[in-house]
Each structure stands twice: as structure tokens, then as C-alpha cells.
Nucleic acid binder design. Structure first.
Lengths: 196, 196, 196, 196
DNA sequence: AATGAATGAGGCTTCATTCAT
DNA sequence: GATGAATGAAGCCTCATTCAT
């Protein structure tokens, strides 16, 4: 996976190294499939040493997800910056979303591992983070001119669902994230746009 | 959750009892969050006894998923039986898919727990099962009359993705699975149908 | 240490073996100084196997203490059985108490390791057990004819305290538990008996 | 707990701060229940920094106990100073002993946590310290006029045992240390004294 | 078919201590 | 004197699985 967006501080930053390693492992093996020892050895330390930087495995998980959301937000915001056409804005946002999620960031990929955390606090924090991120898409959909009666909530949820779910069938060499996103948006765009 | 679709053989069928218990637990707590002891005690036996009926935890998982797919197939086929209008067929199929997935079957719900199984064999078997099930949707989409150039693959994947992902935001009392499905299909339908 | 009173069921009783081992280790090394692995290897099993019989380390600790109290009760009751003179009854009870505590039972010895358990439940249960056991002594002291104004509560607490504390200076070969107990009781007895 | 006797050097004395913190924590949570980090953070430093002042955790423990004994000695000596009646001297000494132990000094309270140290050296040093402290009581008991044949060793050990053990049932608001001590001494005093 | 004791590996975490800065 | 990151061992406990009965 392309690490361009991923690395935080490549050297002399053990905390960043732990997060990098955790992101990669979580995204590949899931939360339960990744042990503290795995994370530790992948970041060149011993398991116990991790606790100098994070208070628990869940703390790491949460930090990874936070960073994933940060990267998504950043990419999406950059993608719509300076664009004024509403459909083009949405399409660009989705392309950026898909690219980061599927191809560029292990941090973001972890967001798709819907782990029903036993810990209620953690779950609530993550839900809040996700919700905040999706605000951008709420706005983008609201800005479209659509036929009266179009259910904008379903539109937004359908778009994000279609994109997020794609990591279940996406295959790196074969598919192209941006093209997937644009292709899907156009399914809605053509007709909804013409009608308006 | 409505158990109507769910129960296999109500009594004197220990194997069915194990699967029922496993489906409920897997769908609630995930694969790793469910122990063999949990499954055993929920089906009135001891952990060791399960191995009289299943060879491993993964075997149970696979059986649950198989049954989940069977239930989905059954419901979808029943929903389109006797209907001839292509869009109506698709809408009915999606409504059935959503209902079983979100509301009626713990077996089907387990399919949404995307567990990256360490075991390649298991993963391949599940992929094949899913793929077979999705054949129906491939056909349903192929049967639509659509404007030239419409990417039918993306259409199918978008629809299924949108529906499958909805279990991440669906809330039992508040939302209605069939309505979600029909609402989303209509986003595509109205215009595509007219334009074709 | 003399094991006569100690063994529960010498063979084919793994639960008893665990308790025996735990009693010996706890009495020698204390609660924190004894690991589950220590107990396991001393009873010929692996650490994990212990959990077939006990739910936690604290559960073992509590079971050991319970058995210690049972042994003390048994010995004390046997020692006063058939004796009618109140002072002789008290002396015999104390001699039995001291013998079991200092010399005969690792289970009883553990009672002297006042471990401030972090767990409130456990602490309460132990307090209740101890209290129940001390009822015998309450009765024995109440049965004495004593000079008016003698504080029977302090008398009881002083006797038990003196005996219990003796394990801090007692040395197996040099001292004799029964003699210690009788010697101490006599300090009170001679005069109090005459004066009454 | 009353800190009057306790504080060593209130400020700018890190070593004293560490000991104060350690005494409080050891007396409340025991030796194993107190971590170096606990001690460090309670004395406003980090775990590593403690090693500038003490060579090990056991070193701290020993220092605390030493200070506890010093405080006990000081209080006992002050309590018998200028008193000539032997029984009154003993009673005063015991009252002082009980007050410091139960109510006034966390340092002294630690002495009652009988931790069977794995380290033989440490254990021997502590035994020597205790023994030296108990010399006062040996003398006080020797000075009593008692009936011939009275076992003075048992008398001393019974008195100290009764008092030391009282921390197992003593409750701050309800009981009064000095009264406990005087009440118990009187149990011996009345009769032994009269007989002499 | 079922039991239940046992295994052996591995889980997360804590801890006293060290050491370069 | 003090820091704080790191160590390495050890802690309790859970788990999927096995097997004699």
C-alpha cells in the first residue's frame, strides 16, 4: 500500500512508528487479529515499551482511527477546494475518499473494520468522529439541485455505503479507486441532474 | 430479532441449536468476541461437546454464513417470484435482502462481519458463496433497460454496497429495512427508467 | 509442617491438590509472592488448568482461608468437648488454636497473612468467616467467672491477639504452640479465677 | 491519619518526600500493592528519579520501617520519662505504642505489614531493629514485681502481641488506641499486681 | 453423544530497574 | 538531580482444542 499519505514522522518518533505499525496491522488483520507483540515487533520495540506512549491497545486503535479520519478530511477538503460545480465537487470528494480509503492510507482503511468495541466510551468517541467527518458529505449533497422529493439522506447514505463497501471487492491492481467513485457518482448524476 | 426465518430445527437437533446460538453470538459480538464456551453454554452443552458436530470454530462460522446465504437466497427468490416488471423485481429483491439482513436473520447478519479470516481456504469458500448469491442481482440488473453506456457492474455493486453498509447506521426501531431499500432503488429508478 | 490435619483428599482430587499447594505457598510466600504458575507446578498441572477448578486466584485464596477456618473450628471444638471447667475449656481451646495455627495447618496459617484485598467482596466474606469462628471464643470468655468490671471484650481480643501474633516470633523447633497458649492463659487465670 | 509525628522534612527534601509517600502507600496498600510509580507520583517525581535517592524498593521499605521504629522509640521513651511506678510506666509505654502504631504514624503502621521478604538480608535487618525496640519492653516487664514463677517472657510477648494485633480490628472513629492499651494492661495488672 | 479436565499457546498489561540525555 | 523511554520478565487469565471416560 502506498505509504505517501501515511507516515507521520518517519524517524525519532517512536509514537509515530507505533501508530504506523498498528495501522498496517489493524488494516490487514483486524483488531483482534493484531497483538500488542505484533505491533511492538513491527515498530522495533518490546510489547511493554508501547505503554510508554499509549495506555492500552484500545488507545492505539482510537488514535489510528482519529488519524485515519484526519487524513480523509484533509484529502477530501483539498479535492473540493476551488471547485464550484456541485456535482463536480461531490465527484471529487468521493474520488478522494475512495483513493485514501482503498489505496493510500492504512489509517483510513482501519475505519472500515467495524469492530463492535466492547467498550462503550470508545465506541461513542468513534461514532462522533465518523459523524463529524460525514458532515462534509451532508453539505455536498445538500448543495445539489435535485428533483423535488428526492430523499437526500438516502442519497448521501447510499453514496457513502457504496464506496465504503467497495473495499470488500476492490482489488489493488485490477481496480482504480477514483474511477470506481466517479463511475458510481455518475449513476446518480446523469438522471438526477437532468431532471432538476 | 425476528426469529421466523432463523430457526432451523427447534428441538432434538443439537447441531441446529449450536448454529442458532452461534449465529446470534457472532452477529452480536463478532467472531473473535465469541468463544466456543459462549456458543456451547448458549446451546446447552459443554465446549468439548461441540466437536461432536463441528470440526472447528471456523467450521461453525462457515456453516452459519452458508445458512445466512441460503436464507437470503430463499427470501429474494420468493420476493421476485411472479413479478415481471424488471424494476419492480429489483426493488422487491432489495427489500427482501435488506429485511433479512437487518432485521430477520442473525445468520445473514453475520455475513456483514467482514472477518479477514487467517485461513485462505475459508476465505475462498465464503467468497464463492457470496458470489453465487450475487448472481441473482447480476441478472436482475442485466434485465433492466438502461440508457446506453450505463455501467451495470457499478450499478449492481453500488446497490449492494449501499444496502450492506446500511447495517452500520441502521437502528431497529427508527428505520425500516424495506423502506430503506425501496427508497434507495428509487434514486436510480425514476430517471433511468424514463431515459431508457 | 505437619500435614496431618492438612490434606483433603490425597489422590484423584486435583481440586484438593491445588488447595494443598496453594495453602503451603501462600503461608510461606504470601498472596502476592505466590503466582498461579507456582501453585500449578506445585500441584502438577499447568497454570491454565487451574481455572477448571477455580475461577480466579482470589477464589483459591478464599477457599484456602475457608478451609483454614474449618480446621481451626474443628480442632477447637474437639478440644473443649467433654470439658466442663470454664478456664480449662478456654485453655484447651487456645492450645488447639495455637497448635493448628502455628504447627499443623498451612491453611490456617494463611489466615494470619492479613492481605488487604483490593476486592471489597472478598474482604467482607473473610471478615464474616473470621467473625463466625471467633464466636466460640466470645462464648468461652463469657462463661468465665470474673471479677466485676473486667472488660471481657478486651480479654478476648487480647488472648486472640497474643496468640495470633505469636507466629511472628514462633520458631518450630524451639517453641511449643500448646505450651505457649497455656502459658499465656495462665497469666490471666491464676488470679482472675481466685478473685472471682 | 495524624501527620504530626510523621513528616520528616517538609520541603526541599526529596528523600523525605519519598519516604512520606512510601509510608502512606505501604501502610494503606501493602508492599506489593504499592508500585515505584505510585510512590514517585505521590512525591512529585518520576519513577526513575527515585533511584537518585534509594537503591531499590526494598531499600525504601527498610528506611520506612527504620523511621517507624524510631518514632515508636521516641514516643515510648517520652511516655515513661519521669514516671517511677513500674505498672504506670508499662501502661504509659503501651498507650504510646498503640497511639503511634494505630493512629499517628504511617511509618509505624508499616511495621505491622508482615511481609515475608524474599531477601534474607532485609529480613534479618528488620528483625534486629524490632528486637532492639522491644528491649524497652523487656526492661519494663522485668521491673514489675510479680508472683514467683510468672513467665515474664510470655507476659511481654502477650502484651505486645495483643497490641500489635489490634490493628486488625481497630477502627479509627470507634476505638481509642490509648484506651485499648490501658484496658488490656489492666487485665494483667489487677491480679498480678495484687498477688505480688 | 457428551463430559469435563487438561493442554499449551498466547492474550494484555504491570513492574522494578536502567541509562543516555 | 532529574527525566522518560526502554527493557525483560513476569503477572493473571482466556481460548480452541483434545481425549479418556
Amino acid at each position: 500500500m502506498n505509504q505517501a499519505v501515511q507516515k507521520q514522522q518517519p524517524q525519532e518518533n517512536r509514537q509515530g512508528a507505533v501508530l504506523d505499525a498498528a495501522a498496517t496491522l489493524f488494516s490487514k488483520n483486524g483488531y483482534e487479529g493484531t497483538s500488542m507483540r505484533d505491533i511492538a515487533s513491527a515498530s522495533g520495540m518490546l510489547a511493554g515499551s508501547i505503554y510508554c506512549h499509549f495506555s492500552s491497545k484500545e488507545d492505539i486503535f482510537l488514535s489510528v482511527q482519529r488519524e485515519g479520519i484526519r487524513q480523509l478530511s484533509e484529502a477530501v477538503n483539498a479535492a473540493i477546494d476551488g471547485i464550484s460545480d456541485p456535482w463536480e465537487r461531490l465527484e471529487n470528494a468521493c474520488a478522494a475518499h475512495a483513493k485514501v480509503l482503498l489505496d493510500e492510507s492504512d489509517f483510513a482503511a482501519v475505519l472500515l473494520h467495524v469492530t463492535p468495541s466492547r467498550n462503550r466510551d470508545v465506541w461513542d468517541q468513534l461514532a462522533a468522529l465518523r459523524d463529524e467527518y460525514e458532515q462534509v458529505f451532508r453539505q455536498l449533497v445538500d448543495d445539489l439541485s435535485l428533483p423535488a422529493g428526492t430523499n437526500r439522506k438516502y442519497l448521501r447514505l447510499a453514496i457513502l455505503g457504496a464506496l465504503n463497501w467497495s473495499h470488500n471487492w476492490y482489488r489493488p491492481g485490477r481496480d482504480d479507486p477514483a474511477e470506481i467513485a466517479r463511475g458510481m457518482i455518475r449513476l446518480f448524476r446523469i438522471q438526477l441532474q437532468e431532471q432538476a
